[in-house]
Amino acid sequence: MITIDGSYGEGGGQILRTSLALSLVTGKPFSIHSIRAGRKKPGLMRQHLTAVNAAAEVGGARIEGNRIGSLAFAFEPKMIRPGNFHFAIGSAGSCTLVFQTILPALIIAGEPSEIMLEGGTHNPFAPPFDFLEKAFLPLINRMGPRVEAVLEKPGFYPAGGGRFRVSIMPAGLNRFDLLERGDIIRRNARASVANLPVKIAHRELKVVMEKLEWDRDRLEAVEVEKSQGPGNILIVEIESENISEVFTGFGEKGITAEKVAKRAVKSVQEYLAYDVPVGRYLADQLLVPMALAGGGKFRTLSPTRHTTTNIEVIQKFLDVEIAVHEYDRNKWEIEIWNG
């Protein structure tokens, strides 16, 4: 049985989710201890427990220690069981992270799957639904499977109450390289508010317009309906010939709309300045599917601690080599190949 130290590297929930995803795919059991030791509240929170239980349902796994606050558990999968699934977190915990835990197994399963997930769809501590839809899933589809996600109801932190559905048509994974962004086709920014004054969105978009020197026709303010609680998100999308990237800023109590927008704009400016195709967060998300495909190569910004930690966990389950090197100033290349 593989032993995972949950305090390693960035010491967060990603270690848990990657371990679950790869245990399902490989059939290798694992035990994990010191779960989320690097966080203020260590152990399994509700969204992590939902991910564990979702993985157990997909893989018919036997688990010990799956409870709120648990610092350790053991996971022994049997076989991947595609089908219709419904997972509800019961809080504003991230649906997208639960989804990404079970996605690798279901995109290579023998039959299609349908999933409904309920909880937080727009959570500042996780990729929002828009990132999945616009940036991540198009690349998964490029590898062979067909995955379609539909947002039915937004769920902002801290109220939650969101819902989205996913249809998965599995296929063998094809490797691909992503070394050039290509020409930029479209740039746009959308600021959304739920149960908050729309002027917040207009203030954020004003910063985007001034800092990025964009025309007004690239900007959109949206008042979200059907939201269970208040929320605000600024989404900036850069669509290029070979990839779309999504950058976000989340409204927070006590943080001005201008500061929220400046944070997002800073990430966009860095991405555009270094002319690499893959942003930092997407780089982290691509590692598992590329490793399962047997290889791939992409260029990105300087790797985060999430990325380097994820590499270490992947290599505990898969016989792959992963090389990370800086090929130019602040430009990095990550290559994966079978060991």
Results as ranks from 00 to 15, higher is better:
2 I>E: 11
3 T>A: 14
5 D>H: 01
12 G>Y: 04
12 G>D: 15
12 G>H: 09
14 Q>S: 09
17 R>W: 02
17 R>Y: 06
18 T>H: 11
19 S>I: 05
21 A>Y: 02
26 T>K: 04
27 G>C: 11
30 F>S: 07
31 S>R: 15
32 I>Q: 06
32 I>F: 05
34 S>N: 15
34 S>R: 15
35 I>T: 08
37 A>W: 00
42 P>W: 00
42 P>H: 05
45 M>G: 05
45 M>S: 11
47 Q>M: 09
48 H>P: 02
49 L>P: 06
49 L>K: 06
50 T>Y: 02
53 N>F: 04
53 N>K: 14
54 A>D: 02
55 A>K: 06
55 A>L: 12
55 A>G: 14
56 A>P: 14
56 A>W: 12
57 E>Y: 01
59 G>T: 12
59 G>S: 13
61 A>F: 12
61 A>I: 13
62 R>V: 14
65 G>E: 09
66 N>M: 10
67 R>H: 14
71 L>F: 00
73 F>C: 06
75 F>A: 11
77 P>D: 12
80 I>R: 09
80 I>S: 08
82 P>A: 13
84 N>Y: 04
86 H>W: 09
88 A>W: 05
89 I>Y: 03
92 A>G: 05
94 S>N: 11
94 S>F: 05
95 C>W: 03
95 C>P: 00
95 C>H: 01
97 L>E: 14
98 V>N: 03
101 T>D: 07
102 I>V: 15
103 L>D: 10
103 L>Y: 11
104 P>F: 08
105 A>S: 12
106 L>N: 10
106 L>H: 08
107 I>R: 00
